[in-house]
């Protein structure tokens, strides 16, 4: 079979085109993520059969349908416990959790909180399009204050949830925010995140022209893309405080946390070996 795209070897090509709308940022995220995985596989720091994907429900979670790896498309918000269990049983796996802001910050909030507390060895990629896309454009915890959505027809009265601050506070080993408007930077973050032990969290600012842009006056994908791009602020060493965003202030992207604390898997195997070796009574 002729290879149409350099990433075809990592895709279930019979399922392409994807279900994502024209102008959606998710294709960029998936391409970027697979390029980062490809770099890791090529350099020998990751084995293909050890890469696994898990996602809950939402447009982002549907990313689990396309890569030609072990993949789980589970229930809303619950990809993290699924992926964590796979990692515990098979510590050689590199589990990548993909989810939207609704999937990970809202309904799955409790799990991300405790996965970070454990420093669970997972790469969690949260694509933040600031809206519930799949269900039709309802407000999300990440929706900037004041914006219109289908469930906040008079404007969103709530504060935006800043997942960077949360994940940094709870002790993730790696915390970065990228944007689909800057895929090369995003690829760097994802590549680095794939090499980390412990929990790596990468937030990706993305576009939903159909259900986010449409209600705030940017109906065309290009208009929304340009609008988001305008509001992205790139910083080499941003402080955690700078991660707070609003529609007016814009979005600081960069690496917020990079440390190397022991991951959960190493710790539990250390205990297990001690118990089995008779070191613990």
């Amino acid at each position: 079979m002729a290879v149409a795209h350099p990433l075809d070897k990592y895709l279930r090509t019979d399922r392409i085109p994807t279900m994502w709308c024209p102008g959606c940022g998710l294709g960029i995220v998936m391409g970027t993520l697979l390029r980062a995985v490809d770099r890791r596989i090529k350099e020998g720091s990751l084995k293909r059969e050890n890469v696994g994907f898990a996602g809950g429900i939402g447009c982002t979670a549907r990313m689990t349908l396309y890569p030609l790896f072990d993949s789980a498309h589970v229930i809303h918000g619950r990809a993290i416990p699924f992926a964590l269990a796979v990692k515990i049983v098979k510590p050689e796996m590199k589990m990548i959790v993909v989810g939207g802001d609704g999937d990970l910050a809202a309904i799955g909030g409790n799990h991300i909180l405790h996965a970070i507390r454990r420093n669970a060895d997972l790469l969690v990629v949260m694509v933040n399009n600031m809206i519930y896309g799949m269900t039709g454009g309802q407000v999300a915890p990440t929706t900037p204050r004041g914006l219109y959505t289908t469930t906040t027809p008079y404007g969103n009265p709530e504060r935006e949830m800043n997942m960077i601050k949360l994940t940094a506070a709870l002790g993730a080993n790696y915390v970065a925010r990228g944007s689909i408007t800057h895929p090369q930077l995003l690829e760097q973050y994802l590549y680095k995140a794939l090499g980390k032990r412990g929990l790596a969290f990468v937030e990706v600012i993305s576009t939903c022209p159909e259900l986010f842009g449409r209600h705030i006056g940017f109906r065309s994908p290009v208009d929304l893309y340009m609008e988001i791009r305008k509001r992205i602020v790139i910083k080499a060493k941003p402080s955690i405080e700078e991660s707070d965003y609003s529609w007016e202030k814009g979005f600081v992207i960069g690496e917020f946390v990079d440390r190397d604390e022991p991951g959960f898997t190493d710790t539990i195997y250390e205990y297990l070996n001690k118990i089995r070796g008779g070191g613990v009574q």
Partner: peptide
């Protein structure tokens, strides 16, 4: 653990059952 198995206390029952599903798929 003496038999090489893992016992983990999760944050709630929802996480627990989803982890059980994940472990079974491993």
């Amino acid at each position: 653990p003496k038999h090489g198995g893992h016992v983990i206390q999760f944050e709630d029952e929802i996480a627990s059952i989803n982890a059980v599903i994940g472990a079974s798929w491993a």
